[in-house]
Amino acid sequence: MRRNLARFAAASAMAITVLAASCPSAAGDLSIAIAPSVDNPADPQMGDHLVFETRLTNTGATPVLGVISWLSIVRVDPGQEAPIGLEDWSAEKAVTRASLAPGETIATDWPMRLIQDGHYRAVVSAASRDGTILAASPFADFTVRVKPVVQSARVIPVAAGVPLLLMLLFFMRRRASSSR
């Protein structure tokens, strides 16, 4: 009987340990709200600027240490699904804070330049130094309208071809004049 009790106690301790590891810790106390800025164009097109405003709040009872939040954008057009590299889209790489006290909020604006047309979803994620899960905002969807811009496929043949033709003519004339 005592032996059985000891086995039960050991099993219970292991279960509690596993349960504790799977419970959301620090970063799980972060909540993120996202909304487009009121100044955003109603029907944005390529080249326009959009701003998304986020509010990152510590909803827990203890401070969250080493908070990092960042913006991600994904394209969701059928057949074109892909994460977007933000080097050209957004100047804001990430927002960091050494400590976020309980109830404290970080308000951040995420400006971006719309580079390509399509349907997109923006999300802001946050992680902390000790947290075990990622906090993420709801998706903010937006559509970028196409704008006629310069097509490199048309420019490069002309930009290279016309000077090359003239150079050919130039060297032909030079050869003809030197052979005379």
């Binding site: 390529m46 080249g47 050209d88 330049r113 580079i115 704008k147 006629p148 811009v149 310069v150 490199s152 420019v155 490069i156 002309v158 930009a159």
Partner: peptide
């Protein structure tokens, strides 16, 4: 000038 237009992100977004 034309190559600059396609080589620069800022300029490549100019309207036609």
């Amino acid at each position: 000038f034309t190559l600059l237009l396609v080589g620069s992100t800022e300029l490549s977004l100019l309207d036609n």
